[in-house]
Design a protein around this nucleic acid. Structure first.
Length: 204
DNA sequence: CGGCTTTGACCAGCGC
DNA sequence: GCGCTGGTCAAAGCCG
């Protein structure tokens, strides 16, 4: 869980995720757990990097996308963002200092990704950090483009992608890559409120 | 004027 | 090998 604390520095960890899910439409309570790695560990020797993720004991073999939609709508569809699912990528070195280079000849180091879905009207979730957009691409099977952001802190190579679902355009998928090595720049109580609603699901 | 967004080009991985 | 797709670069433009 260390990674999540580094990514989402929730201050008050007193009340662990106590949350209330209301099955509003037709879905049941589950977590969209997707591991966004693309190479099974058969290519070179193993998945690069020590898998020190505490919860990553299972995800080492899973590189498929499990889709279990969850609806965490409150009784009224309030305008505030709501985390509807959490996902994480392949466990590996959570480095962001040397892994960013993509020079040819070097072995690529896949960094883990942590994705979660929020139900929000705005694409840009204010998580307290400052991001600079560096790209936008149209993805297949999706009518909304995917935006690429990078943390503007000096030496911090944390990246994130923001994509809105075609299926449910009220859902925004945010994918984090890397971990911040600096304190949060702007405290956000709102994001902490999101954290209180977030439930991390470990399938094993 | 500085920081950020926009946007087309470029590149690498992967499947056929 | 080739084309597709995702990810990044970087020049230009925008905006406070």
């Amino acid at each position: 869980m260390e990674k999540f604390q580094m990514l989402f520095p929730s201050s008050s960890s007193s009340s662990s995720a106590h949350h209330q899910y209301y099955d509003d439409d037709h879905h049941h309570n589950s977590i969209n757990f997707l591991s966004s790695s693309s190479s099974p560990p058969s290519s070179t020797s193993m998945n690069d990097g020590p898998s020190m993720m505490t919860m990553g004991s299972s995800a080492a073999d899973h590189d498929y996308h499990h889709h279990h939609q969850i609806s965490t709508n409150n009784d009224d569809g309030r305008h505030q963002e709501q985390v509807v699912s959490v996902a994480m990528g392949q466990p590996g070195a959570a480095d962001q200092g040397d892994g960013g280079k993509k020079k040819k000849g070097e072995k690529k180091v896949k960094k883990p990704r942590y994705a979660f879905q929020t139900r929000s009207q705005v694409d840009i979730l204010d998580d307290g950090y400052r991001w600079r957009k560096y790209g936008q691409k149209a993805v297949k099977n999706n009518k909304f483009p995917r935006s690429y952001y990078r943390c503007t802190y000096q030496g911090c190579n944390v990246k994130k992608q923001i994509q809105r679902l075609t299926k449910d355009e009220g859902v925004v998928v945010t994918t984090y890559e890397g971990a911040h090595t600096h304190p949060i720049e702007r405290p956000s109580d709102n994001f902490e409120h999101i954290l209180n609603q977030m439930q991390i699901y470990t399938p094993f």
